[in-house]
């Protein structure tokens, strides 16, 4: 008798978990506000399971190790969209099912990492550029990536602890594409970055904001979303766009192959592309929205915010990180390790 009740209990638990009307979202931590998820459940009756990762690599490895793991929505960055699409890990999107795509800024669509947006829809985006504390340096004296090499920044520079981000600085300073696979150019970027090491105070892996706010570093290369929060917290900080071309990053919604709730995934992407929802996400997280209709509905101080919405002429000169292939990736990693042990 005891066993019988146990079995019934287990069956009940099993039923609770196998209910059909769910969507499994695998996303960066704190990248979709709770209010948005609640609203989605309220509007559609679909229960949301929200799991998080801390890096694109983590997302990739997890899907690679278990392709039938059961996620319906993932949010990889541009270069991982390209890679995962190439390796057949993403579902080809039926854009006819996504009428709200009309709201997305055309300048952020049809990029080299995903021509025709066959596999991905922009979720949030931003730039990577220089933040400088005007108590110590005049922001007007910093106009190109090469200016970071000046001796006055000795042991003051904050960089992200991200291989591609750091190499992008070296490559952009030399005037090369940040997606180069030419071994000679990569080597030159490494040699150039070696000369930058005396200026590097730290590679930040866990949030650059407090470090710039408390002036533990007085100049840095950071993401625009972080820069927005930094300039609010410390009035002396200024975000500067270099004339030598900016770096744009785009995080995208994609559907992995074998997604168990395909119809719900389309519903979710469409839901996110509603101007009202896109506005909620962008305003709460402080990252730029690709949803141009949403942006037009925001207060003027945000629409005119140069950090979040750089002018079109600057945006048009942006480069977006793409995928390099395994051999080139290994070459970057080799020079990245050399760079770190030279410090």
């Amino acid at each position: 008798m005891r066993y019988k009740s146990l079995i019934i209990l287990l069956m009940l638990i099993g039923m609770a978990y196998s209910q059909n009307n769910v969507i499994n979202i695998y996303n960066w931590s704190a990248y979709t506000p709770k209010s948005v998820i609640k609203l989605f459940t309220k509007q559609t009756g679909i229960h949301v399971n929200y799991t998080t990762y801390a890096s694109n690599e983590e997302l990739y490895e997890k899907l690679k190790a278990d392709p039938s793991i059961g996620y319906d929505i993932i949010v990889p960055s541009s270069y991982f969209v390209q890679r995962m699409a190439k390796e057949g890990m993403l579902e080809k999107l039926d854009l006819k099912q996504l009428p709200n795509l009309k709201n997305i800024n055309p300048l952020l669509l049809n990029k080299p990492y995903d021509p025709g947006n066959q596999y991905s829809i922009p979720y949030l985006w931003g730039t990577t550029s220089i933040i400088v504390n005007n108590k110590y340096y005049d922001p007007k004296t910093i106009t190109t990536w090469n200016d970071l090499w000046q001796q006055r920044f000795y042991n003051q520079l904050l960089l992200n602890d991200d291989m591609r981000d750091v190499f992008s600085i070296g490559l952009a300073a030399l005037g090369y594409s940040i997606n180069t696979s030419d071994p000679e150019q990569i080597k030159q970027a490494y040699l150039k970055l070696r000369q930058l090491m005396p200026n590097v105070k730290l590679f930040s892996s866990d949030g650059a904001i407090p470090i710039m706010l408390d002036e533990d570093a007085t100049i840095g290369v950071v993401y625009s979303g972080d820069a927005e929060q930094m300039t609010k917290g410390n009035k002396k900080l200024r975000y500067v766009y270099t004339k030598s071309g900016i770096i744009i990053w785009i995080d995208c919604m994609s559907i992995p192959k074998n997604a168990p709730h395909l119809a719900n995934a389309y519903k979710f992407i469409n839901f996110i592309m509603q101007p009202k929802i896109a506005k909620m996400i962008s305003m709460q997280l402080g990252y730029s929205s690709p949803n141009i209709t949403a942006v037009h509905g925001m207060p003027n101080r945000i629409q005119n915010n140069m950090i979040m919405y750089p002018p079109q002429n600057i945006l048009a000169h942006g480069q977006t990180e793409g995928y390099l292939g395994k051999a080139t990736q290994a070459l970057y990693l080799h020079y990245w390790e050399l760079l770190k042990i030279s410090g």
């Binding site: 090491m197 590679f203 770190k340 042990i341």
Partner: peptide
């Protein structure tokens, strides 16, 4: 990584 600034491996 946290205290040393990730400058070495």
């Amino acid at each position: 990584e946290i205290l040393g600034g990730a400058k070495s491996i």
